[in-house]
C-alpha cells in the first residue's frame, strides 16, 4: 500500500516538473519534438533510478555518522553526490556504447546533458534528507522505498515531458504574436498544464 501511495504521489500529485520545479531546463530545451522528448525521458529515467541507488548507499554507508567511518560527513553530501552522478553518467555512456549500440544511439546525445539536470541531484538529495509522510509517520525513506520513489518520479518526468511535447508540436503550427514566440508561450502553456495537474492534489495525503 505504501508503495502504491508513493507511485501515485510521485507521478501525479507531486509531479517533479509541474509541482516541484526540478529539471525545467531540459524540459523546455528538448521538448520541441515528441521523439526527442521520449528519448530524453528514457535517459533521465535510467540515470535517476541508478543515481538514487548509488547515492543512497553512499550516504548510508559512508557519510552518515552510523556508517563505516563513524563520523558525520553529511555536509559533504552535495559535493559527493554531484561527483558520483557525473561519474555515473560517463560510465553509463561507455557501457551502453559497448553493450547496446542501438540504445546508445537513442539515448547517447542526451546523456552528457543529464549531469547538470537538477532533477537527478534534486531527487537523490531529497530521498536522503527529506522526511516523507507516506503511510503515516514521517520518516526517511528506506532503500526499497527510495528506489520506487525515484523510478516513479522519473516516470512523472517522462509523462510531463511527453504531454508537453505533444502540445508544443501543435503550438508550432499556430500563429503566435512575435513577443510570445519560443519560450514565453511555452511557459504559459506549462502553467496551464500545471493547473490541470493541480486537480490531483489532495488525492494522496
Amino acid at each position: 500500500m505504501t508503495y502504491f501511495l508513493i507511485i501515485i504521489s510521485a507521478i501525479f500529485v507531486n509531479n517533479i516538473v509541474l509541482a516541484q520545479f526540478l529539471g525545467i531546463c531540459p524540459f523546455l530545451g528538448v521538448s520541441n519534438k515528441l521523439s526527442t522528448a521520449t528519448g530524453m525521458s528514457m535517459a533521465v529515467c535510467f540515470v535517476i533510478t541508478l543515481a538514487t541507488l548509488v547515492t543512497w548507499l553512499i550516504n548510508h554507508y559512508f557519510l552518515m555518522a552510523s556508517g563505516l567511518f563513524g563520523i558525520d560527513l553529511t555536509f559533504l553530501q552535495t559535493i559527493a553526490f554531484i561527483l558520483v552522478i557525473a561519474a555515473l553518467v560517463q560510465m553509463v555512456e561507455i557501457v551502453l556504447k559497448k553493450v547496446s549500440p542501438s540504445l546508445y544511439q537513442a539515448l547517447g546525445i542526451f546523456l552528457p546533458l543529464i549531469t547538470t539536470n537538477c532533477a537527478v541531484l534534486g531527487v537523490s538529495i531529497d530521498v536522503v534528507t527529506k522526511q516523507f509522510t507516506f503511510g503515516g509517520a514521517a520518516h526517511i525513506l528506506s532503500l526499497g522505498e527510495a528506489m520506487v520513489y525515484a523510478f516513479a518520479t522519473s516516470l512523472g518526468y517522462g509523462l510531463a515531458m511527453v504531454i508537453f511535447a505533444g502540445l508544443r508540436e501543435h503550438l508550432a503550427m499556430n500563429n503566435v504574436p512575435k513577443a510570445f514566440r519560443g519560450v514565453p508561450i511555452a511557459l504559459v502553456t506549462v502553467g496551464i498544464l500545471a493547473m490541470a495537474f493541480m486537480g490531483f492534489s489532495g488525492m494522496v495525503k
Binding site: Q131, T133, A137, A138, K205
Partner: peptide, 10 residues
C-alpha cells in the same frame, strides 16, 4: 509534538 505535514515532518 510532531506529525507528518504536507511537505515532510511538522
Amino acid at each position: 509534538s510532531k506529525t507528518g505535514g504536507f511537505g515532510g515532518e511538522l
